[in-house]
Each structure stands twice: as C-alpha cells, then as structure tokens.
C-alpha cells in the first residue's frame, strides 16, 4: 500500500477512535454504579429512550409514505421535494430549533392558533422534544427508505397489479415487505440520530429535568459542574450507540439489505 494513502488513513482511524478510547480510560469505573443511581440520571435516560422511540415512530408514519412518493410517484417537482426534505439533514440543528419555535411556539404561526384553541403550548414540553428529534432525524429514514424502494424491483408491483391488487394493497402486501430491511435500517439510523439530538431540542424544548432534559443535554450541563458524572453519562450513550451499530450490522446490513 502506498504511504501517501496509508499514513493519512491510519491518522484518520486514530482521530476517530482515540477520543472514544480516552473516554474509556478516563472513566471512573469504581463510581459508575453510584453515579448511575443518582436521581435524574435514570430519568434523563428514560426520557431519551422514550422520546427517541416516539420520534422514530412519528418518522416511520410520515417518512415511509414520503419516501414512497419520492421513489414511486410521477409527481412533478419531485426533485425539489427531495431537496426540501433533506434540508434538515444539513441544517444546523439549532437553526431547526429556532424555526420550530417560530412556527410552533406560543407566538408562532401555528402555535398561536393552537394555544388560542386549546390553551396548550408546545415548547418546553416532552412533545416538543419528540418534535425536535423527529425534525432532525426523519430525513435519515426518508433517504434510507427511498434508496431501498429505488433498489427494489418495481416489476413485483406490476405483478401484484395484474393480480388485482390496488396500489394501497400492493404497498402493504408487496412493496413494504420487500423493503422491510431498508425500513428497519432507516429506523435504527433515525433512532440513533434522535437519541443524540441536542441543538434543536435545547432550543425548542428547553432543558427541564424530567420533561425535556434528555441525555445529551444532561451530559453537557453536568460537564460544567461535575466532569466525572458527565463521563459516566457519556459512557452510557456510547454503549447505547455501539449496541445500535452492532444491531444494524448483524441483523440488517449483514444480510445484504438495500440502503
């Protein structure tokens, strides 16, 4: 292997892996138990898992049909639509949070109407956490499912049509089962992204322990007061992320899934 490729490649690996090793080295292993048992830690972890799961559910319900429209419909301006859908992917999450606040906040375009009608205001609630996470994470699912749909042989859908299946039946009974691995991979990716969401969440949902303080927010705030506790929280997130990755590789990506 030529050195001009090998050396930067090795440096790249070190760059990506060393910080994680550092986390492991600096971890106060003896204090992990007590640290995890502290009030607030379990709460933040539970809130993170629940809100990431809900955000993934929202993304599945909205994102899979959206991916279908992008991949299969004859709609004019599909490329524009795709570009719009992927904007949250490249947008700084903080900007997303501000945008959500301006639309869904108590004084927002839609939020004002919601508040006047029901007296309910979205920001600084757990629902806001789910919305912020779904906003940031759903494009991952859409892109992944759209790719799977494009790779799947559309002639199976023709065959279903000749057997009397309308497009909805075809979608449920043929298309969705065919792209299930892609949907699953997209859902895991989406869930992992939602779990780590920070910027949009803290901007739109705030940082209230028990209702909106997810793990990443807890890590950031603890780091300033008690670095040891922040390391422990980080380890937990690292563990969850690694588990997700293993799940992805073994269960879906390994079986030649289309993503």
């Amino acid at each position: 292997m030529p050195a001009p490729l090998l050396v930067p490649a090795l440096l790249g690996v070190a760059f990506l892996v060393l910080p994680l090793l550092g986390l492991l080295v600096r971890a106060p292993w003896s204090e992990i138990g007590p640290q995890l048992a502290r009030p607030g830690v379990g709460e933040a972890l539970r809130l993170s898992l629940v809100s990431a799961t809900l955000a993934t559910a929202v993304s599945l319900v909205l994102g899979v049909p959206l991916a279908w429209v992008l991949a299969r419909s004859q709609l004019r301006g599909r490329s524009v639509l795709r570009a719009l859908v992927t904007v949250p992917l490249v947008l700084p999450p903080v900007v997303g949070g501000v945008a959500l606040f301006l639309v869904l906040g108590r004084q927002g375009i839609l939020g004002r109407w919601l508040f006047e009608a029901t007296g309910f205001s979205l920001p600084f609630t757990t629902a806001a956490v789910v919305i912020a996470e779904a906003f940031v994470a759903m494009p991952f699912l859409v892109i992944s499912v759209e790719g799977a749909l494009r790779a799947a042989d559309a002639r199976f859908e023709d065959a279903a049509a000749t057997l009397g299946a309308d497009r909805w039946t075809t979608f449920r009974r043929v298309t969705l089962p065919l792209v299930a691995p892609g949907v699953a991979a997209g859902a895991v990716l989406c869930w992992a992204r939602a779990l780590g969401e920070f910027g949009a969440t803290i901007t739109f949902a705030g940082n209230f322990p028990g209702t909106t303080q997810t793990m990443p927010l807890a890590v950031y705030l603890t780091l300033q007061r008690e670095p040891e506790a922040a390391i422990v929280l980080s380890l937990v997130l690292l563990g969850v992320s690694l588990a997700t990755l293993l799940l992805l590789r073994d269960r879906w990506l390994g079986r030649g899934a289309v993503t």
Binding site: D153, R155, A159, T162, L163, G164, A165, T169, T170, L178
Partner: peptide
C-alpha cells in the same frame, strides 16, 4: 387491478417474501 387478467412474466416474479401457496392465493385474496 380492475382488469380480469393473469400475467406470466419471463422471470416468474413470484413474491420472494411469500410462500408458494400464498403467491398463488394472492390474486384470490385481493
């Protein structure tokens, strides 16, 4: 799907996620 027809394709296009019986039953189920 509103035409009374049956079609056989060059590379059979049996649905890979269904058993052979369920493939054959598909047109009746719809």
């Amino acid at each position: 799907h509103e035409r009374s027809l049956g079609m056989v394709f060059q590379d059979h296009l049996l649905f890979p996620h269904l058993s052979v019986t369920d493939n054959v039953a598909f047109g009746l189920r719809t």
